[in-house]
């Protein structure tokens, strides 16, 4: 059963154009011109209950805008959204009690009070059963290791500590659908790793549906089987992360260690020479004929070592971004 269904979703922002300088200011004072920014052009996908999907794309691709529409913050210019059977923008309380949107910079914590006060406030607002609240809270406190800073004024916490508290506040009501917008931004390496295992565990334990955006490929690689790549407001790829290699990377890399010097021209017969400084050469060859090429090379030269490698996912995704621009 699909938890999230999106069809031809579109969002256009009107932005007041302001020309530089005093003259521009005066002019825009008289007649204000608007430019349209098509943040999301036409996005369709559907996500099943319990799926953990990576939502990736370069800056300004439309990821955050899409998540904001899915959670009911923004009114879509057109298109259909259905999350758990609700239309998000109506923001029915029944709906809001089952979702959470966590943004790197967003702040639902009360700045002047300790985080524990926000948590108890959420208990009331979300009408969480007292016993359940205690269990969930204790569990989250333990998982994120924050017991010693619960009573510290939020404004005095570090960025990472605040992020952990935001996450707890967002999860206390055990949302079935979770939108995570760059949840690891600004966290140290250890915390990033902890956050990842935490997200994975949450997904598994509650069978929660999660959409995650991140610019760290490690997050995506570790967590998401399926990814949706979006750029300029349109979906470029929607499928398994492992399949993207076959779809978008028609090449493999051969890394060769030579015993004796070989001329670069001789190498170029076999493929594109990406780098060559004796004794190591990296050759890009067609995926289908990688094995054949490798054996030809082994026959023709004195080889110390040879490796056939899949290109890095980072590189493939970068290629996808660049190709479609």
């Amino acid at each position: 059963m699909s938890a999230i269904r999106v069809q031809d979703l579109q969002k256009t922002f009107s932005v007041a154009k302001k020309n530089p300088g005093l003259r521009g200011t005066l002019k825009s004072f008289v007649v204000r011109e608007y430019t349209k920014v098509e943040a999301v052009r036409s996005v369709s996908f559907s996500i099943d209950e319990g799926e953990l999907v990576g939502f990736i794309g370069p800056n300004g691709a439309g990821k955050t805008t899409t998540l904001k529409m899915l959670s009911g913050l923004l009114y879509p210019t057109s298109g259909k959204t259905d999350v758990l059977g609700f239309t998000p923008f109506e923001r029915k309380h029944e709906f809001l009690k089952q979702i959470s949107l966590v943004m790197g910079q967003k702040n639902q914590l009360w700045w002047d009070l300790p985080a524990i006060d926000t948590f108890s406030l959420n208990k009331e607002i979300y009408e969480i059963d007292a016993k359940q609240f205690k269990i969930t809270l204790d569990e989250l406190i333990e998982l994120l290791d924050v017991s010693d800073i619960l009573h510290t004024q939020v404004r005095k916490l570090s960025l990472g500590q605040r992020m952990k508290m935001e996450l707890i506040a967002a999860l206390l009501h055990q949302p079935k659908v979770l939108f995570l917008d760059e949840p690891t931004i600004g966290l140290d390496v250890v915390m990033q790793q902890k956050m990842r295992s935490f997200v994975k565990e949450y997904n598994r334990k509650y069978n929660a549906t999660i959409i995650l955006t991140s610019h760290y490929m490690d997050d995506v690689k570790e967590l998401c089987k399926r990814i949706i790549i979006i750029d300029h407001g349109s979906v470029l790829y929607d499928g398994l992360l492992s399949d993207i290699v076959h779809t978008y990377a028609p090449h493999k890399s051969l890394t060769i260690q030579f015993e004796k010097k070989v001329k670069q021209e001789e190498l170029s017969k076999f493929g594109i020479v990406e780098s060559y400084t004796f004794p190591t050469a990296v050759l890009r060859v067609k995926r289908a004929s990688a094995l054949k090429t490798a054996s030809q090379i082994l026959n023709e030269f004195d080889i110390a070592d040879l490796n056939i490698e899949e290109p890095k996912i980072e590189d493939i995704i970068r290629d996808v971004f660049e190709q479609k621009k």
Partner: peptide, 10 residues
């Protein structure tokens, strides 16, 4: 700040 409030059932 409205965003955080809009997303709560309150």
């Amino acid at each position: 700040d409205l965003s955080a409030q809009l997303l709560r059932p309150f």
